[in-house]
Measured scan of single mutants.
Amino acid sequence: MSIQHFRVALIPFFAAFCLPVFAHPETLVKVKDAEDQLGARVGYIELDLNSGKILESFRPEERFPMMSTFKVLLCGAVLSRVDAGQEQLGRRIHYSQNDLVEYSPVTEKHLTDGMTVRELCSAAITMSDNTAANLLLTTIGGPKELTAFLHNMGDHVTRLDRWEPELNEAIPNDERDTTMPAAMATTLRKLLTGELLTLASRQQLIDWMEADKVAGPLLRSALPAGWFIADKSGAGERGSRGIIAALGPDGKPSRIVVIYTTGSQATMDERNRQIAEIGASLIKHW
């Protein structure tokens, strides 16, 4: 067993022997301040990774656009098919120029040779490549099948209805392509620590998230040296922004954090800054 596999296998073990965790309302004060600064709703939840206990939450059962955070769930569904012998990570998928959609920095470079399922998941999570996500959605049967996968996990809230990039439209009061912070946090925890996926697939999923290259201005910008984070960000229309993450000190994750916002007129930089400040408060009061 590799060191990384050992780390993920012992996530519940280490967490069980940690000192009790206590909620700190100071972080919620910052979440509410972010709402004021952005002029928009902000949803927040913080779960203990081992027990699933909610440590703090704000608007945990209000719907927010998922945006690209759905790509972690998508690759979880792909990995479940791999575990069941219905898919192979090494299978190569070929596609054409007509398949390319807006923001496809990886797939646009491989029109000639195609990409493997493993490479597509890596591109979808680490670079948020939209064509990679659409190609992977095709392998599982489309958005409705991802929703069905989530329902089978016990998540009857999260739903995907459309493809990239239309799913980022974020129309107010439109339930399409949305989740709730509580539902997303619980589902992410199941994917990373539950028995739904094999140990190898859980490790692969967290490795992809740990290698995320496009979430630097968010929670990662607030992390002290030595902290662990595996995350996936999302951005959408109407001032929408979000991030889902597993993080913790001492090089291992111990909490799940989900943050979503929508309806702001603020710039992307300002949305990023507010999420980073929430992260800084979380870490300060850990």
Rank of each mutant, 00 (worst) to 15 (best):
A246W: 03
L167Y: 02
A245F: 13
V106E: 02
A222N: 14
V106F: 09
W227T: 02
L137E: 03
R255F: 10
S254Y: 01
E164A: 12
L89C: 02
F228E: 15
T112S: 06
L218D: 15
G251T: 13
Y103A: 14
F228V: 15
I283V: 06
G194F: 02
G39S: 07
G251E: 08
L137H: 02
R176F: 00
D207P: 00
L192T: 04
E26K: 04
G234E: 11
R118A: 12
L223F: 15
A34Q: 00
A280R: 12
F58Y: 01
R63H: 04
E108H: 08
V214Y: 14
G239H: 00
Q88H: 10
W286M: 12
R41L: 11
N152G: 11
G114N: 10
L135E: 07
E119T: 09
G154M: 09
T262M: 02
D212L: 01
L219M: 13
T131M: 08
R81V: 06
R176H: 01
K144M: 05
Q204A: 05
C75G: 05
W163E: 10
T186I: 11
P172K: 02
E62N: 08
Q265V: 13
H151L: 02
E119A: 02
F64C: 02
A280K: 00
P165Y: 03
H151V: 06
M180I: 14
E166W: 09
E166A: 12
D207F: 03
A183T: 02
C121H: 00
I229N: 09
G141V: 03
R118F: 13
A230V: 11
F58N: 08
T267E: 10
T27S: 10
E108R: 07
L28H: 09
T116G: 02
G234F: 14
E108W: 05
H110W: 00
A225T: 07
E102R: 00
P165H: 02
R81F: 01
L197Q: 10
L196T: 06
D99G: 08
T178W: 14
V106S: 06
S68L: 07
A40G: 02
A211W: 04
V72G: 03
A235F: 12
N130R: 14
I140L: 10
Q204E: 10
S80D: 11
P60S: 07
L192N: 14
T112D: 04
R59I: 07
I229C: 11
V117T: 07
E169Q: 08
V31T: 10
E175A: 04
D83Q: 03
E145H: 12
L136D: 02
A211M: 07
L199E: 08
A170M: 00
T147Y: 02
L135G: 02
K284G: 05
P224W: 15
E277C: 05
A225D: 07
E108P: 10
R220K: 14
N152P: 05
S104R: 04
A84R: 08
D83M: 12
K109M: 07
Q204S: 07
A40C: 01
P105F: 05
L136N: 05
Q274Y: 13
E210N: 13
G263R: 00
A182R: 08
A183P: 06
A133F: 01
L89K: 07
L282P: 10
R255Q: 08
S201D: 08
I244C: 13
Y260M: 15
E108L: 08
H24R: 05
E169I: 00
K144R: 03
G263T: 00
I278H: 11
L49E: 00
L196Q: 06
K30Q: 11
I243M: 11
T261S: 12
L191V: 08
K252G: 09
R159G: 13
D33Y: 14
G242Y: 06
L223K: 13
S233M: 15
S128L: 02
Q203M: 13
P253Y: 09
A235M: 14
R159P: 12
I256T: 12
T179M: 15
L282C: 13
I45M: 13
D99Y: 08
N173H: 07
M209A: 05
G263P: 00
R241H: 15
R220H: 14
T158K: 09
H24C: 12
C121V: 01
H110N: 03
L79T: 02
D207Q: 05
A211R: 05
K144F: 07
M66S: 06
G239A: 06
G216D: 13
L150V: 10
Q86L: 13
I140G: 02
R202K: 06
M115Y: 06
D207T: 04
A77Y: 13
S264I: 02
A245D: 12
S96D: 07
P60H: 10
G141S: 02
D231G: 15
R91C: 03
R255S: 10
D48R: 04
W163Q: 14
D174A: 07
G85A: 07
L137F: 00
M180D: 15
A222T: 15
A40V: 09
R220W: 01
L282V: 10
D113S: 09
H151W: 06
R273W: 13
K284N: 10
G216P: 15
D231M: 15
E62F: 10
A276T: 15
N130E: 10
L137V: 06
T139D: 09
E210S: 15
E277D: 05
T112E: 01
E145L: 14
I283P: 11
E62W: 14
L197D: 13
A84D: 04
G236Y: 13
Q274G: 09
D161I: 02
E56N: 13
P25Q: 01
Q88M: 01
D36W: 03
P181K: 05
P25D: 03
A40P: 10
L205E: 06
N173V: 05
F70Q: 04
G234D: 14
V106G: 07
K284R: 06
E237S: 00
H151A: 05
P224I: 09
I283G: 11
C121L: 03
L282I: 04
T112K: 03
G43M: 06
N134G: 02
E166R: 05
G234V: 10
F228H: 15
L218Y: 14
N50A: 09
V117D: 12
R162L: 00
D33H: 08
R238S: 01
D250C: 12
P217F: 09
W208G: 07
T193Y: 05
P105L: 09
A183K: 00
G236L: 15
S104Y: 11
R189Q: 04
